[in-house]
Amino acid sequence: MSAPNKSYDPVEVEALKPEEIERMRDEALAAFDAAADLDALAHAKTAHTGPASPLSLANREIGALPPAAKAEAGKRVGMARGAVNKALAARLAILETERDERVLVEEAVDVTLPYDLVPAGARHPLTTLMERVADVFVAMGYEVAEGPEVEAEWFNFDALNFVPDHPARQMQDTFFVQGADAASHSGSAAGKSDESGVVLRTHTSPVQARALLDREPPVYVVCPGRVYRTDELDATHTPVFHQIELLAVDEGLTMADLKGTLDHMVQALFGEGMKTRLRPNYFPFTEPSAEMDMVCYVCRGESVGDPDRPCRTCGSEGWIELGGCGMVNPKVLTACGVDPAKYSGFAFGFGIERMLMFRHNVEDMRDMVEGDVRFTRPFGMEI
């Protein structure tokens, strides 16, 4: 490129001739119109608007023109470049619109087709039922109380009036946690009770003792939780299961209060019109003690004495055994620092697995512990 020269004639510069500028412009417009997609348009953009494009090179030639000729040449090139950029923007908008419309068609999803995502899980029905039972008593003013699953033998047995030679203390019924000293001597997985004094709780009743020690009467608590016994796993037994118990200690409580509470519970869980009955029994931690039955929720007792209407749920007896109950033994109150001359109380407990079998006709308890989603999913995600 030569230096400025006043005698330089712009008409002699080939790139700046009017017909040459028009040709460059028309070639750029034709290239843009011929671009079938955004990639082709990008190549055309580089070829006709980039630093090495004909119009860009022509624009550089203007600097060598005499001052009097620069204005006309600059206007001519500027108008051509403006027309090229305008055509480029218009073609870009058209191609982007076509691309978006094509994507909507090609990548459309039919939401009515079967999905192949991982199916949603479900809460375990034991958890749901245990929380539902607890909610019944919370609505009555009870407080939810919890305690450790690895429990001191005193809370699990002694505080609840289990005598030292009670069968429930034996190794065939209770998991004893081996102490460090016992482990060094025996090398076995379980020591005797006099070696550690620690067990896996066999019921949730120790929580009742802890509640009485931690609170001043009146005490109204419901105690859900996991318990352990040395049972074989079969259709009706499992070594790890769940219980829920309630404890009420106040002035003037009687068996009538217990009966009314139980009636309300079964009606809340099984429907209106459900009744309960108490049969005499024995438990170390209650006196008097009883087994609580509820009227069969399927036949409502109508199958009794009617051979034409047998009931498989209750065996046509009209009643279903649900759990044990009774008035808190004064020895338990004394062990927990409560004056039995001033306060009385009642307690009730039952197994959640057993109630789940009643409510939903579950025939094999092993289905509850095997973790098969085909068992839990029908119960849904109830919260």
Score class of each variant (00 low, 15 high):
310 P>Y: 08
338 V>N: 00
261 T>P: 03
308 D>Y: 14
258 L>H: 00
286 T>Q: 04
236 T>Q: 12
311 C>H: 08
290 A>L: 06
287 E>P: 00
343 Y>R: 07
303 S>N: 08
275 K>V: 09
338 V>A: 02
303 S>F: 04
327 M>L: 15
345 G>Y: 01
346 F>L: 08
289 S>R: 03
346 F>C: 03
313 T>E: 13
325 C>N: 03
307 P>K: 06
262 L>D: 04
276 T>P: 05
276 T>R: 03
230 T>K: 13
333 L>T: 05
297 Y>L: 14
281 N>S: 15
224 P>T: 05
318 G>Q: 06
331 K>E: 15
262 L>F: 07
289 S>A: 15
279 R>V: 10
237 H>E: 11
220 Y>I: 08
219 V>S: 00
232 E>W: 08
219 V>Q: 00
225 G>K: 01
241 F>C: 13
250 D>H: 12
272 E>Q: 13
256 A>P: 08
244 I>G: 03
253 L>E: 04
262 L>V: 09
221 V>F: 06
222 V>L: 06
263 D>E: 15
254 T>D: 11
295 V>N: 09
229 R>M: 04
277 R>M: 09
222 V>N: 00
342 K>T: 14
337 G>H: 04
326 G>Q: 00
224 P>H: 09
274 M>D: 01
331 K>A: 15
245 E>Y: 02
339 D>T: 09
268 A>K: 06
248 A>R: 01
302 E>I: 04
230 T>I: 10
304 V>C: 10
340 P>K: 08
280 P>F: 01
240 V>K: 01
262 L>I: 11
347 A>H: 00
258 L>Y: 00
342 K>I: 15
321 E>K: 11
289 S>D: 05
297 Y>A: 15
310 P>V: 12
322 L>W: 07
306 D>W: 05
305 G>Y: 11
342 K>S: 14
296 C>L: 07
225 G>A: 09
309 R>H: 15
242 H>E: 09
312 R>T: 13
294 M>H: 06
297 Y>V: 15
267 Q>G: 06
249 V>W: 02
270 F>P: 00
226 R>C: 07
301 G>C: 11
241 F>H: 12
289 S>Y: 04
338 V>C: 04
313 T>S: 14
299 C>D: 05
231 D>G: 07
313 T>W: 07
